[in-house]
C-alpha cells in the first residue's frame, strides 16, 4: 500500500497532464494553471525545508568545530545578515540590501562565471591535440570558431573565419546536435512513460 498510493497518484496526474495537453478548452487551461499554482506553493514550502537543512548542517559544523568550520560562520552570517538587512532596511533601489547585492554578490558571481574562460583555456590546451583524424577535425573547427568569434580573426582571414564559423554552427554542429537531441527526446518520453506507468519504480527506493 505504501508504494501503490504514490504509483497511483503519479499515474493519475501523468495521464491528466497528457490529456489536458490536447484540450484547448478553458476548463483544461484552468486545471493546468491551478496545478502550476499548487506547484508554486509546494516549492515555497520545500524551500523552507531546504534552507533548514543548510542551516542545520552549518550550525552542526560550528558546534562540532569540524574542519573548515570558519566557512560555516561566513555562510550563516551571510544568510542572516542579508535576511535582517532586507527585513529592516527594505529591498528597494538604493537600500543597503541592493548595494550588497550589486557590489558584493554581482562581482562574486561574475568572478565565478569568468573562471570559465580560464578553465576553457586549460581544457582546450589539454583536449585539442591532433591525436587522430577526428581529433584533428575537432581541432581545426575549434580554431576556426575561435577566430570567427572575434573581428581580428576576420581581418586575418579576409572575412573567411566568421563565414565559416556561421557555417559550422548552422550545418555540422546542428546535424550532430539534432541527432543527439532526437535520442534525448525519445529518452525523455521513455523516462516519463516509465514513471507514469509504474515501470520505473527506483524513485520509490526499491523497485521490487
Amino acid at each position: 500500500m505504501k508504494k501503490r498510493i504514490p504509483l497511483f497518484i503519479v499515474f493519475l496526474v501523468g495521464m491528466l497532464m497528457i490529456i489536458q495537453f490536447f484540450i484547448p478548452h478553458r476548463l483544461s487551461v484552468t486545471f493546468y494553471t491551478g496545478f502550476l499554482n499548487w506547484f508554486t506553493a509546494m516549492v515555497l514550502f520545500a524551500l523552507i525545508i531546504g534552507i533548514g537543512t543548510l542551516l542545520n548542517r552549518h550550525f552542526k559544523k560550528i558546534k562540532r568545530k569540524d574542519d573548515d568550520w570558519g566557512f560555516s560562520i561566513v555562510t550563516i552570517t551571510g544568510f542572516f545578515g542579508m535576511l535582517l538587512i532586507g527585513i529592516f532596511g527594505g529591498i528597494g533601489e538604493g537600500t543597503l540590501f541592493m548595494k550588497l547585492f550589486e557590489f558584493v554578490l554581482t562581482p562574486l558571481q561574475a568572478t565565478m562565471f569568468a573562471l570559465l574562460a580560464f578553465f576553457i583555456a586549460s581544457a582546450a590546451f589539454r583536449a585539442f591535440r591532433a591525436r587522430t583524424f577526428e581529433a584533428s577535425l575537432l581541432l581545426i573547427a575549434a580554431l576556426i570558431v575561435m577566430l570567427g568569434r572575434v573581428p581580428i580573426g576576420d581581418k586575418l582571414t579576409f572575412g573567411f573565419a566568421s563565414t565559416l564559423t556561421e557555417w559550422i554552427f548552422r550545418i555540422p554542429n546542428m546535424a550532430a546536435k539534432r541527432g543527439i537531441q532526437m535520442g534525448i527526446a525519445l529518452g525523455m518520453i521513455a523516462t516519463s512513460l516509465k514513471i507514469i506507468f509504474g515501470i520505473e519504480r527506483s524513485w520509490l527506493g526499491s523497485d521490487d
Binding site: 574562460a117 576553457i120 583555456a121 582546450a124 590546451f125 589539454r126 585539442f128 591535440r129 591532433a130 591525436r131 581541432l139 575549434a142 580554431l143 575561435m146 577566430l147 568569434r149 572575434v150 573581428p151 581580428i152 580573426g153
Partner: peptide, 24 residues
C-alpha cells in the same frame, strides 16, 4: 571589449598550437 576578447582568443589559439607542436 572586442579587443580583449580578440587577444585572449589569439593567446588560447597559441597555447593550442604550442601544445600540438610539442605533441608532434
Amino acid at each position: 571589449k572586442m579587443t580583449s576578447q580578440a587577444i585572449a582568443h589569439i593567446v588560447i589559439i597559441l597555447f593550442i598550437l604550442i601544445g600540438n607542436i610539442a605533441y608532434f
